[in-house]
Amino acid sequence: MTEELHDVRLSVNGTMYEIQVPARRLLSDALRHDLGLTGTHVGCEHGVCGACTILVDGEPMRSCLMFAVSAVDHELTTVEGLTNEDGSLSPVQQAFSECHGLQCGFCTPGFLTTITAGLRDNPTPTHEEARDMIAGNLCRCTGYQNIVKAVERAAVLVDLAEAPAPEAGRRP
């Protein structure tokens, strides 16, 4: 049996891509295999670890729990789309670098996308709120302490930059 292919148009990081995929293609796999955007990582493939988290219309969602065919009406932002326009690190990325918020880095793309949206919604998180912001993401290396520090540092960097955090594909 040859599987039916669907023409799918995906808008990712401001670029429109056209791909042909079977309906069962997970969005995470479409991003990685069909578009070559391997920044999005895949850990558990059932929604638990958060490594595959991307922004869908600016809101964090699990790309392993969506099908590419159902992502057509949305603006998607992956970790590749978080850097500033001049290619320099975004405040959240910069804070991870400064605070040593990663070791192997496998979980990092999911944390970066989640925190980018989290700080947009709450630019001045308390320590508790910073912990809560990352509660849905697993990291097997860092012990989280430096990730929480990175959230707090990123809040300061966003504030210093005076500009609001990148709107990350949020619709007007």
Binding site: V56, E59, P60, M61, R62, L65, M66, A135, G136
Partner: peptide, 8 residues
């Protein structure tokens, strides 16, 4: 669940 799951 977590906020990310609740978004979808």
């Amino acid at each position: 669940a977590h906020a990310t799951i609740r978004n979808r």
